[in-house]
Amino acid sequence: MIKTVSFLKYLIPFTLLLFVAQHYGTAALSVNHDFFYATWGIYLFLFVSTLLIYVLLLFVDISFPDFTGFAFLGSTFVKMMAAVVFLIPLIQSERTETNLDIAAFFVPYFLFLLFETIFAVRLINNRAST
Rank of each mutant, 00 (worst) to 15 (best):
A21Y: 04
Q22V: 01
Y24M: 07
Y24N: 02
G25V: 04
T26A: 02
T26G: 03
A27Q: 14
A28M: 11
A28Y: 15
L29K: 02
V31L: 09
H33K: 10
F36G: 14
Y37M: 07
T39M: 01
W40L: 10
I42D: 07
I42A: 08
Y43V: 03
Y43G: 00
L44E: 02
L44R: 02
F47K: 12
V48T: 14
L51W: 13
L51G: 10
L52G: 13
L52S: 15
I53W: 00
V55P: 00
V55C: 11
L56N: 13
L57V: 00
F59G: 06
V60D: 04
V60H: 05
S63M: 05
D66K: 08
D66F: 15
D66T: 10
F67C: 07
T68A: 06
T68M: 02
L73F: 05
L73M: 15
T76Y: 06
V78G: 02
K79N: 08
K79Q: 13
M81N: 07
A83R: 01
V85T: 07
L87A: 14
L87Y: 05
I88S: 12
I91C: 06
I91A: 09
Q92G: 04
R95S: 14
R95W: 08
R95A: 12
R95E: 12
T96S: 14
E97I: 13
L100T: 04
I102W: 13
A103S: 15
